[in-house]
Design a protein around this nucleic acid. Structure first.
Lengths: 155, 155
DNA sequence: CGCAATTCAATTGCGCACAACTGAAATGTG
DNA sequence: CACATTTCAGTTGTGCGCAATTGAATTGCG
């Protein structure tokens, strides 16, 4: 098994830089498609991710949401404030632990789910990948992320 | 060839959402590693990308840089101003076309290249992918981006 | 128990991405 | 040639991602 770090310099230079760039490009391309789809729902993509977590797990403290999405309070606090302003979410200090803030879905936030189920299908519809390819991609991404995290731990 | 849009609902719902998420996660993980490496060079990752373009192509108008990196003037103008403040780049209105601004490397910007060549190798060293896997990943990403762009054109 | 260390959300500050707009310069058309 | 259209870079405003810090609440240890 040839390791990338053993490939010729010019080759690895190109590939090394290009890999991250392609990743970013793909990520932003997804962003454009999501932006259009989510506009009607009054959500940005990161806000949509938070809603997915809440739809799946129900009421959660900010910390837990951050663990699911790898986001810290610096990102989540203002984002959740905007979700609250939109009316999809309610925040309240936990009674058991006054440091913690519990985020819960409002009525509007809960019912939004039905209007959002079509989103991932629409996304998949335009990716033009086979199931195998999508799973292969997913698997490669997971491995890359894991090894990068080992090198520069997210904590 | 099974198309994702034909897979069962629950499966595609999960995969559809997860694909973009994994992409973002991998992109951010790369970002963390690059951030550490580029700190010594006084560059952010997007600034590094601009430098790569300039190292390869030499003096270029803002528009061309944007075409290489898929970035518009709203992103590039302040970024280039910061690169100029750091001293890696010089900007000047083009003589032939007064609308255009030409970006050129300074002495410091040119010589920075030597200190930057180790970056992609270091990055590759921690991705833990074989050459085949890296190329497969690259190819999948390119296809995904192309199909997403067809659905929501970057223009 | 009492005090230090830890945990949690929030805030501040910086840089990037993108949409929408501005204004100046160039191009094209009648 | 005159005037509308297009092409540039820049600015403004919003939202994200992350580092660093703050302040309050909890936990742990002596």
């Amino acid at each position: 098994m040839t390791k990338l770090s053993q490939v010729s310099e010019s080759e690895s230079l190109r590939l090394g830089n290009q890999l991250c760039f392609s990743l970013q490009a793909a990520s932003r391309a997804f962003g454009s498609v999501y932006r259009v789809l989510l506009k009607d729902l009054g959500l940005t993509y990161p806000q949509y991710l938070v809603m997915l977590v809440l739809w799946e797990h129900g009421e959660l403290p900010v910390k837990r949401i951050g663990e699911h999405l790898r986001l810290d309070s610096g990102t989540l606090s203002p984002l959740l404030k905007r979700l609250e302003a939109t009316g999809y979410v309610r925040r309240a200090r936990s009674a058991e632990d006054e440091r913690s803030v519990t985020v819960a879905l409002t009525e509007a936030g809960t019912s939004l789910r039905e209007r959002a189920v079509c989103v991932p299908q629409h996304i998949l519809g335009v990716t033009d990948l086979s199931l195998d390819e999508a799973m292969a991609l997913q698997s490669l991404l997971a491995r890359v992320t894991a090894s990068l995290d080992a090198a520069a731990p997210p904590d």
